[in-house]
Simulated assay, not measured.
Amino acid sequence: MSWANQNYPEESIQLKAAFANSVAYLVTGLNGGYGGPSLREHLVSWTVETAGKASPGSWTFEKATAFSAPLCFSPTAKFLGRLAEIQEVEACFDDDPEDLLALRESRQGRSPLPSPEIQEIINSWLSGDYKKAIALTNLYSRRSGLRFCKGINRDGSPCGKVLAPQAKGDYCLRHRHQARKRLSMPPTS
């Protein structure tokens, strides 16, 4: 945090915290510290994953600082599309107010109504036709390139949460225990 305060004194506390958490994550491999995870922290971790960089926990402070600073302190417009994508699929906290304002303004032209494909999935869930909802979700997943959790809620409805690109497996954190159950189930004929 002191490096951020010294080199970016005019930036918001949220961006400085995202930077400090990101550097700590890259150097130690551990998350946490100054709140979050924020949009900018997710931006750093997504960029590490997609760029094929060294694994978190193996970076030097200098390399982590050089990598994280542009992602955390550049103007929102530089990463607006990626930040919007992150906001759609990740739980984010302690975000920079300017990031949130830019994202809100960029979405003003978007329709608040779901597409007809999504509406059909929603209608299937609401009517209790879960097999149809799952089939439509899988079809939409293949067409859109998005991955959805395959977990089943306690009421029998499908989870349907969008998984982050770097997520491993087919289940969100809440339903990951179901992956083990599915592997141990006897085959059905």
Rank of each mutant, 00 (worst) to 15 (best):
S55C: 08
W3A: 08
G81H: 12
S68N: 00
A77W: 07
E120M: 07
I121L: 03
L26D: 06
A77N: 11
F61R: 10
S157H: 07
A69H: 12
S124I: 00
A167Y: 03
L80A: 08
S189L: 14
W3G: 01
I118F: 11
E88H: 12
S157I: 08
P112Q: 04
P37D: 10
A179P: 06
E90P: 00
Y140Q: 10
N21Q: 04
C72G: 00
P56D: 03
S68D: 01
G156M: 01
S2M: 12
S115H: 09
P116W: 03
T50H: 11
V27N: 06
R142D: 00
K16E: 00
S124A: 15
R142F: 05
R107F: 07
E88A: 15
S22H: 00
R154E: 15
S157C: 09
S184F: 15
P37M: 14
S189M: 14
K132I: 00
F67G: 06
S2D: 14
S141V: 00
P56V: 05
A77Y: 06
E11L: 11
I134W: 09
S22T: 01
V89Y: 12
S68Q: 00
G145E: 02
L80P: 13
G128S: 02
L101C: 06
M1Y: 09
G145D: 01
P158M: 08
C72H: 06
L26H: 02
T65R: 11
K78Y: 10
C72P: 08
A51C: 05
C149V: 10
Y171F: 15
Y34R: 13
K132V: 02
P187W: 08
E98L: 08
A18E: 01
Y25Q: 07
S2H: 12
G52Y: 12
E41P: 02
Q119G: 07
A135V: 01
K150S: 13
K63W: 09
E105Y: 05
S127V: 10
N138S: 12
R154P: 07
I121A: 02
E85L: 14
L83N: 13
S2F: 11
N31K: 15
A66G: 01
L30P: 00
A91G: 11
L71Q: 03
Y8P: 01
A20S: 06
P165H: 13
L101N: 05
P114V: 00
N7T: 12
V27A: 04
Y34W: 14
E90Q: 13
G36K: 12
D99T: 04
A24I: 04
E62T: 07
C172P: 04
K78F: 10
F67W: 09
P70Y: 08
E41L: 07
E85P: 01
A66V: 07
S124V: 03
W59M: 02
A179Q: 13
W3C: 03
D155S: 07
A77P: 04
E88V: 11
R176V: 14
F19P: 00
A135N: 10
M1L: 04
L126S: 09
T50Y: 01
K168C: 04
E11H: 10
P9I: 05
P9M: 05
G33C: 05
E90C: 14
S45K: 13
L113E: 15
F79D: 12
L100V: 09
F93C: 06
R180E: 12
R142T: 01
D129I: 10
K181M: 11
F93H: 11
M1E: 05
A91M: 08
S58Q: 05
R82F: 12
G145L: 00
